[in-house]
């Protein structure tokens, strides 16, 4: 396989869906009492304050969070997306995102896509996505949904594995 093909594969993800509603705030994603937890323990608190507090215990690598409007509203705490990432989440799809949360996800290398999937997917269903193209395929129904395409700058950040690597590259420090 050539480098270009490997890169194409890199943008493709698949996983099981966890469904959430509108306005899931950062206190639900990572409660205030857990904010002083060291990074390696953050995963234990992922979504601990939400309607699915068992997420951290049962999430598998590559799982996909699917939510409604304004996902991640509230605090700037990067512990929130970090906890999701550490617990295994490989992608977050929401109808809309709060600005700081969305940027935090990208900056730590956790892809996000803006699309309204709630009417089309069930909890636990398998979906796949092409991050670069912004397409999401629902395995059960075979439906293909187009999310808003990510900007070139966001794709570059994700490709670097997060903002720190991107800055290192810009400063000539290598990745």
């Amino acid at each position: 396989m050539g480098v270009a093909e490997e890169m194409d594969d890199w943008w493709k993800l698949s996983g099981r869906v966890w469904l959430f509603g509108n306005n899931v705030d950062t206190d639900q994603i990572l409660p205030g009492y857990a904010m002083s937890a060291p990074r390696e323990k953050l995963r234990e608190y992922a979504l601990a304050g939400s309607e699915q507090p068992d997420f951290a215990k049962t999430a598998k690598l590559g799982d996909v969070i699917v939510a409604g409007e304004n996902f991640g509203c509230g605090s700037s705490r990067e512990q929130a997306p970090a906890a999701l990432h550490e617990a295994g989440a490989g992608l977050v799809v929401a109808r809309s995102f709060a600005r700081i949360f969305r940027r935090n996800c990208i900056n730590i290398g956790l892809p996000v896509l803006a699309a309204d999937l709630l009417p089309y997917v069930q909890q636990g269903e398998e979906i796949s996505a092409d991050i670069k193209e912004g397409t999401i395929c629902i395995a059960g129904s075979g439906s293909l949904i187009q999310a808003k395409k990510l900007s070139a700058s966001v794709l570059e950040t994700l490709e670097c594995g997060g903002l720190i690597n991107k800055v290192r590259r810009q400063l000539g420090l290598g990745i």
Binding site: S76, R77, E78, P81, I100, R103, N104, N107, I108, G162, L163, I164, V167
Partner: peptide, 10 residues
């Protein structure tokens, strides 16, 4: 402008 920890580090 509010940001997260990584953007602040940058």
């Amino acid at each position: 402008i509010g940001v997260g920890a990584t953007e602040l580090a940058a």
